[in-house]
Every structure is written in structure tokens, then in C-alpha cells.
Design a protein around this nucleic acid. Structure first.
Lengths: 225, 225
DNA sequence: CCAAAAGTGTTCCGTCTACACCCATGG
DNA sequence: CCATGGGTGTAGACGGAACACTTTTGG
């Protein structure tokens, strides 16, 4: 076991999941009350320790799957956090992962079972340990990436209206976007396909439903909003 | 010691330093032959294990200081690497850090003492473990950041000519930049100050030396190349 | 019939790009 | 005197930003 590096110290390594959702035209974060010591009862990201046969990504995927029952969630590493006293109990090095899910694909029963809540990103409470820092970094990353990667679709249903899509960008980037300019740009992107379907839920007139064609994007993965 | 998390496994955690330099109009990477098992003799980044009283940043700074004798080196986390079998010897989770230094501030004796070499970024050999991946990610990060942060000055002496500065951008971004357009943009940036000094080394006519005014930048930290 | 959201083009302005010649000097 | 790198301006193309009215229909 300790054939090579035995003179060095070992540490616990955890993953923490920053799960973003979009609802009510707002960017939301999934947090819960911490169920173990130390810090029991504090608001916290959901995380878990890395197991022996798991990579960091595996661990993050496991935690996300446990929480949501969902697979193939969009996920990206935010970074490693390793201040000596970041965890009030022990020395733990944590790797933060950011995930984007569609709130309506997520079983609300499961959410309640874990005691989790969707909280508006602009009114986060103080979180356990350095989790606020992790979230801050994740939001900054998200703001950068959303301009050059087709991330927004992960936060929406398969079929969405252009107004919904615009609201995602407005929520993440902050500030209003001109409707005509936005739609003009979207029209030039051929992997955002208009369908024949019409959404009659959110408007009386009805709005065309669009779809993200991932195959088409993968063929020519260029995106600029 | 194991009051809270004792049922979970612990791992070695290391930092690996991706040290970039600029010389001969080329972006260079500092690598050496690995001096320990496993992998003895393979080309490798320089790294070290995280100690008990060190944060990840502390560890990276220590390793960099040991190598170069320099302090306050520009450094940024690249990410955590945690595939189960990434290290051929044991399970080690490594956090990669990218550093930018001025090659000519770096004592060549110290470099040789550690058996390190500057290698052109476009002709890297195969490196130990997942170090090539780390470098690839670091280069991508660098290419992005150099457009929005004043990083290039870390690779140059305090006083530099505009031609040198342009060569840094060309080396990192790949491809040629129009001299007149480049200089036009630089003139608009007030924290890049022209000095009265003239460099007569690289040209017969002599070129004006410029300086990065960090205070001025910090007052108004906006940068766009 | 009216409130509410969908849908649609044009003009203007600023930014980026392409491009070529003279200058100063050391050897 | 010539080879070498330093230094300078303009015109045209392009892309982003501002901007207001008509349409449809459920209630």
C-alpha cells in the first residue's frame, strides 16, 4: 500500500456539487441543511467523500445521481479548495463541481427527501465552510462559459421558447437583453432548431418551440452569443 | 484526529507546477527528468506532496520557491486531477498550478541543479502520468486569460519593447499580429507606460522601453487586448 | 375588447482589419 | 551604404446596439 510515498501525509478528499437550476426566470442553487457534524444544521452544498475506486468525476457523478436520480448531467470542475482549516472538523481537501439541471426533470419528492431547497442565487444565505467561495467561483465560470458554450439548454426542457432562452441569459449574465437583437442572433445558429410545435401555456397567442440539436452542434462546435 | 470522518479513505495529495517562460520568441515549459520511483527518468512536471500545515496554494508556492528561489510568482490553479490510476505507484490526487516567470530572472545554476530544461511548448515530449493533460489545460486557460488579464508582463523583464510584448502574444495565441494594430491598441492602455529608456540591444535604431504600471492597473483593473 | 406575450428590420456608430512606407543606426 | 528592426495613419468592412409597432387570442 505505502510502497512509494509513505513518508507523506494523507488527507480526506471530498467533492461538493454546485447544482444550478432555472425557475421563475431566476438562476437557482440547490442547497440543504447539513445533516452531520461538524456544522450540522448549517446551509451547505451537497457533497461526499471520494471512494477508493472512484475518480473525482466518478464521485461527483455518484453524488449527483444519488441526489437527483439523473444521469449524464452536465458537470464541470470548478476547482480544488484546500485551505488548512477550511473544514472545521478535520483536514479535508474538496473539489467543487458545477452542474446544470432542468428543474422540472428533477423529482420534487427526492428533493424533499434530502431536505434540499432551490434558493435564488442573488439571495444566498451564508453557507458551511468555504462553500460560498465555491459558488462565487462557479457563477463566474458559468458567466464566462455561457457566452462560448451552449450551456443554457441544460437548464431548460428539451423544447423551449425563445423567450425562455432569453430569460436564462438574462438571469445568468444579469441585465436585460434586447429581444430583437437576441432573436436575430439565435436565427443565425443552425443547431437551435425551430419545431412545428407551439407552446400555449405561457402566452395566449402561443410561442414557437425550439430544440437544441446536439448532433449538429458536435459536428461544428462553434458557439458565440 | 479521526473524530468525524474516520470511516472514509484518505489519499496523498500533490501539487504539480506548470511553469511557463518566454524566450527566443517562444513559449517554453519547464520540465525535468523524474528523480524518484515510480517513473524515474521520465519527463515530468515538478511537483511535491501537500504537507499538513500547508494549503494547496502554500504547497505550490513552496515548490516554486524551492525550484526558482523566486517569491510572488504569478500562479493560478489549473484544476484537480484524480483518475484512480493516474499515478502508476499509488492513488494520488494532484492539483495542477500554472506559473508564469521571466526566464531571465531565473538563476540558471538552480535550473541545472534540479536538472530542469526549458522546452518549446509545441514540441513537448510525452510526460509522466497525466502531466500532458495538465499542460494542455493550462495552455488553454492561458490563451483565454491573456486576452482579459495583463499576464504577459509576468513573462517579460520589467522593461520591455513593444515588439517583445507582441511576440509574447503571438507565441501564446499562435499566428501573427499586425504591428500597427497592436501598437494602436497598446497606446490606448494607460497602465502600459512608455519610459525614456531605449533598448539598443536588439536593434540598431533602438526601441523605446515600456513598463507595466501595476498600481495604475489595480486602480482600474480593466484589460482587453 | 383588452391585456399579455410573440414576433419582426433598419439605421447608426464604433471597432477591427488590412495595408506600405520612411527612419535611425551599427557594422 | 545597406541591412535590420522601429515606428507611424487611413479607409473600408463588419458587427453590435438602439429602437416601436403589429399580431394573436384567452378571458
Amino acid at each position: 500500500m505505502t510502497q512509494y510515498y509513505s513518508e507523506h501525509s494523507q488527507y480526506w478528499v471530498s467533492v461538493d456539487c454546485i447544482v444550478f437550476g432555472f425557475d421563475n426566470n431566476q438562476l437557482k442553487l440547490l442547497i440543504g441543511r447539513r445533516q452531520m457534524d461538524p456544522g450540522r444544521g448549517e446551509w451547505s452544498l451537497y457533497g461526499g467523500f471520494v471512494r477508493v475506486n472512484e475518480s473525482l468525476e466518478d464521485a461527483a457523478n455518484r453524488v449527483l445521481h444519488d441526489l437527483t436520480g439523473m444521469r449524464k448531467i452536465y458537470m464541470k470542475q470548478v476547482g480544488a479548495f484546500g485551505a488548512v482549516d477550511r473544514d472545521p472538523g478535520e483536514r479535508v481537501i474538496s473539489v467543487a463541481y458545477c452542474a446544470l439541471i432542468n428543474v422540472h426533470d428533477y423529482d420534487d419528492k427526492l428533493r424533499e427527501q434530502y431536505g434540499l431547497q432551490w434558493v435564488d442565487i442573488d439571495s444566498l444565505p451564508r453557507l458551511y465552510s468555504d462553500h460560498n467561495q465555491m459558488v462565487k467561483k462557479a457563477v463566474m465560470l458559468l458567466r464566462h462559459r455561457i457566452k462560448t458554450e451552449p450551456l443554457s439548454f441544460n437548464l431548460l426542457p428539451d423544447l423551449f421558447t425563445l423567450t425562455q432562452l432569453q430569460h436564462v441569459y438574462e438571469a445568468i449574465l444579469g441585465g436585460d437583453i434586447d429581444k430583437r437583437n437576441f432573436r436575430k442572433r439565435i436565427k443565425q445558429i443552425d443547431f437551435i432548431e425551430k419545431t412545428e410545435l407551439i407552446d400555449k401555456v405561457t402566452s395566449k397567442r402561443g410561442a414557437a418551440l425550439y430544440r437544441f440539436n446536439r448532433k449538429m452542434y458536435d459536428d461544428d462546435p462553434i458557439f458565440k452569443l
